[in-house]
């Protein structure tokens, strides 16, 4: 009885988590005619891959994928690099006031990202730099970054920096101090100890932080929707919303596009589930 109850609970959780995605996967293989049938079919009557072709012919979906990949990868690299620096300083060095600094960094993650929308939009349109204008005696503006990769990379780095710093700080604290002390005694400088001793040991923590930052950047919608408005510069989550017309919802094509858009994420969560969970809960455990 107890055993049965357990399996029922497990089944319920799995169905709850996976059913919507499975339903979407099945939808993506149906013809648009089959979608408009009553009663609805659960298993596709005749499998078609046509929807996956339409995804690429109706909109430049390959370009969306490329945009998302470039933005997410560059943002992840920069963010993890900066967070590793900060995490090393806060987790391993005897720094006066490091608790205060860490609290400060984590607090910034509590600011609503939405509040950044208006000022960053205004900034990326281009604002005048008064002191430079005075020097050159003509108005000098910051570059217009809208519809460039930088308009997304810059905010994504900042938005994920607090959580990445937190993950890496708690990870660096776990590496035994003796490892580094031994290197220092043997005549390593602090900087070379960082690169020769600490960096190789900290690879798992860096991977964890990188996955979290990557997922955050890949999924971001609001800023991508507002800052990059030309078709060629859309990211995947924004691009997928473009398949729906004013009144028409080609659900089969939308489902296929969603499946392609979440494929990288599914691969990540299948192969790195332990890492992701430990990263997500680093904030939870450390408070």
């Amino acid at each position: 009885m107890n055993r049965l109850f357990r399996y029922a609970a497990l089944l319920l959780v799995v169905v709850n988590g996976l059913f919507p995605a499975v339903w979407l996967l099945l939808t993506s293989f149906k013809t648009s005619g089959e979608l408009r049938q009553l009663p609805i079919t659960y298993w596709p009557e005749n499998f078609t891959f046509g929807n996956y072709v339409s995804v690429f012919t109706e909109n430049p979906f390959g370009r969306f994928l490329l945009n998302s990949a470039v933005v997410s990868v560059v943002a992840t690299l920069l963010c993890v690099l900066f967070a590793a620096f900060a995490g090393y300083a806060l987790g391993r060095l005897n720094l006066p006031g490091r608790r205060v600094i860490l609290t400060l960094i984590v607090t910034t993650s509590m600011f609503p990202a939405l509040v950044l929308l208006v000022p960053l939009y205004r900034l990326f349109v281009g604002v005048e730099i008064p002191w430079l204008s005075e020097v050159f005696n003509s108005p000098i503006f910051t570059p217009n970054l809208l519809n460039t990769y930088w308009a997304l990379i810059i905010p994504y780095v900042a938005l994920s920096l607090p959580i990445a710093t937190l993950i890496l700080t708690s990870f660096f604290q776990l590496i035994p101090q003796d490892l580094e002390s031994a290197a220092l005694v043997d005549g390593c400088t602090r900087v070379s100890a960082l690169f020769r001793i600490v960096a190789p040991v900290s690879a798992p923590g860096i991977v964890t932080a990188a996955i979290i930052v990557f997922v955050n950047s890949w999924n971001e919608f609001l800023l991508a929707l507002t800052f990059n408005t030309t078709l060629q510069m859309r990211t995947v989550p924004v691009g997928i919303t473009l398949y729906q017309g004013e009144y028409a919802f080609p659900w089969a094509i939308i489902s296929s596009a969603i499946m392609l858009g979440v494929l990288p994420l599914v691969v990540l969560i299948i192969f790195f589930q332990r890492r992701i969970i430990s990263g997500l809960t680093a904030g939870g455990v450390k408070g």
Binding site: G17, P20, W218, F221, I254, V266, Q273
Partner: peptide, 29 residues
Amino acid sequence: LVRVALLLPWAMPPVLIGLMFAWLFQDQY
């Protein structure tokens, strides 16, 4: 498998989750 089922809703882009459920809640089909 339980872990994947738990991680998928977290990892999917919220906007795509919205679209997905709009399809699940579609009134006719």
